[in-house]
């Protein structure tokens, strides 16, 4: 099970979402994607998309205005 960190800090919508979509495409089932963001809108649209795709999603607030979205590729 591989773990991939994608840095989307300082990027505004929809760049974090597209980065997450591109990263997930190249990953295997069971792999974990950690998307680093500091744009609060991405906290809404990235998990929304990932859950709709059926992946497992967790959000962690790592600092003031900074989050990690952890996505486990399920299928």
């Amino acid at each position: 099970m591989a773990e991939k960190i994608v840095d989307a800090l300082g990027e505004a919508c929809p760049v974090p979402l597209i980065k997450a979509q591109n990263a997930i495409k190249e990953m295997n089932v069971g792999d974990i994607l950690i998307l680093q963001i500091d744009h609060s809108c991405a906290m809404k649209n990235v998990p929304e998309w990932a859950r709709k795709e059926g992946h497992n999603v967790e959000i962690e607030e790592v600092d003031d205005g900074e989050w990690e979205i952890i996505i486990e590729k399920v299928k």
Binding site: L9, G10, E11, D38, D64, G65, E66
Partner: peptide
């Protein structure tokens, strides 16, 4: 609003392109 939510952050500029 961002201060109340303690989400204030001065963001890095990533590139000249930005």
């Amino acid at each position: 609003a961002t201060l109340f939510a303690s989400q204030f952050k001065i963001k890095k500029i990533k590139s000249k392109k930005q």
